[in-house]
Design a protein around this nucleic acid. Structure first.
Lengths: 221, 221
DNA sequence: GACAAATTGTGTATAAAATACTATAATGTA
DNA sequence: TACATTATAGTATTTTATACACAATTTGTC
């Protein structure tokens, strides 16, 4: 098969992976330990092969970097600036990936790189145009979080309403009234009581909830 | 420059171009006049070259097919199914394009194909996976139309409030009260009176409005 | 085991916004 | 002049968002 050289393009899949840790929305970055750009941070990525879809490539990348491949993925943007990388012409297909931190054991299969979870408002210096890509991914996720259905991928396991409220206060950038927040979520009928409660901390224990299976695209805020 | 053959991909830019004609939201399709798929319809498309961005390619495609290249473009989705075309592996980067029908004179520079505007609920049989692509583009546009800023690209020239209402009744799939619709739009302060009125039809002439220059992303419905 | 500290849980009153409905005037065409 | 359509005013009703104070349940300490 001969392809006209003018139309040959390479595509890399780049993944911004999010979770909730310590009540904050965080993204997983990997540190580059060689020159050039030593000490700068990267997003996990891989070149797309001709015999796979973007989603397959993204899953393989997740498996390679963290040993987990059943994550929620959503396409974000395709970057095509001609000079985005210094030497090669490679398009970047940006994805967001969502995982529940409570079920995630970071296996760090790829030990070539040191990885770390960064709060979304504390992104360090990054290689190439990755800072732009991760910033856009964060904005993309912010918007998506204002509809209900995406939440289930961040919270498949149990959580409390105060935890959820803290998350929304971060995303919206303002404080919310506890009673109104509860009223809103419980009236939407997205949650079900697990029957369990938290324990081991100061104060009254909080009820643990989970999202129902088939929640749709309700607007939350 | 040698590129590993496993990573060679071709990308085509595919454009769903929309306008308002006769009070309806329509999309521009081109008819295929040769076998195979004779009589089926297509969206305008082009292969991406290594020295151009997706947006440049999309503009060039618009210029080639209709002789206009200053249209509003927005990225929609990247399709990567391995078998989407029978012979080649070509990714499809889907765009929506918006033009104002009143300023659009369809030059049909590309006379190789017969073109036609189709209402968005009457899409004819289409080649390959184009029916899926145009349907997704329509859904994408529907959602985007519920925020204000995209409207200015469909209506740079003058329009009446009843026209705008008919459009929203299509998008929302339900009838709206005339007085409440007016109240809503005029209170949002998105429009300015041009000072002109319609004429040549039965009934009281309608005021002509246009969108103000810097309208943001207000939610409309 | 009594108490302080911390945290979750709950109801009601008020304001604001969206919707529904009635009515009438204005301005063109045929 | 009859007719069709747009423009304007207003009000009543329903829905939604907001503001706000105290009781309940645990942990930790004396």
């Amino acid at each position: 098969m001969d392809i006209d050289k003018r139309y040959i393009n390479q595509i890399q899949v780049i993944i911004s992976m999010f979770t909730i840790k310590d009540g904050k929305l965080k993204v997983l970055l990997f540190r580059r330990d060689e020159e050039p750009f030593k000490g700068y941070w990267m997003l996990p990525s891989n070149l797309l092969m001709v015999n796979e879809t973007l989603e397959e490539c993204a899953k393989a990348t997740m498996d390679e970097y963290i040993g987990i491949d059943d994550v929620y993925l959503e396409q974000c943007h395709l970057y095509s600036e001609v000079g985005r990388l210094p030497n090669d012409r490679i398009l970047a297909s940006s994805f967001i990936a969502l995982v529940d931190s409570k079920t995630l054991e970071l296996k760090r299969k790829n030990r070539e790189f040191h990885s770390e979870w960064f709060p979304i408002d504390e992104i360090p210096k990054m290689v190439y145009d990755y800072a732009n890509i991760v910033e856009n991914a964060i904005q993309f996720l912010r918007k998506r979080m204002l509809s209900s259905s995406i939440l289930i991928h961040l919270y498949p396991s149990d959580f409390t309403l105060p935890e959820l409220q803290v998350l929304y206060e971060q995303v919206l950038g303002k404080m919310l009234d506890r009673r109104n927040f509860r009223k809103k979520f419980l009236h939407l009928e997205l949650l079900e009581d697990t029957g369990y409660k938290t324990g081991g901390h100061n104060g009254r224990p909080a009820k643990l909830y989970r999202f129902k299976e088939n929640i749709g695209e309700k607007t939350l805020f």
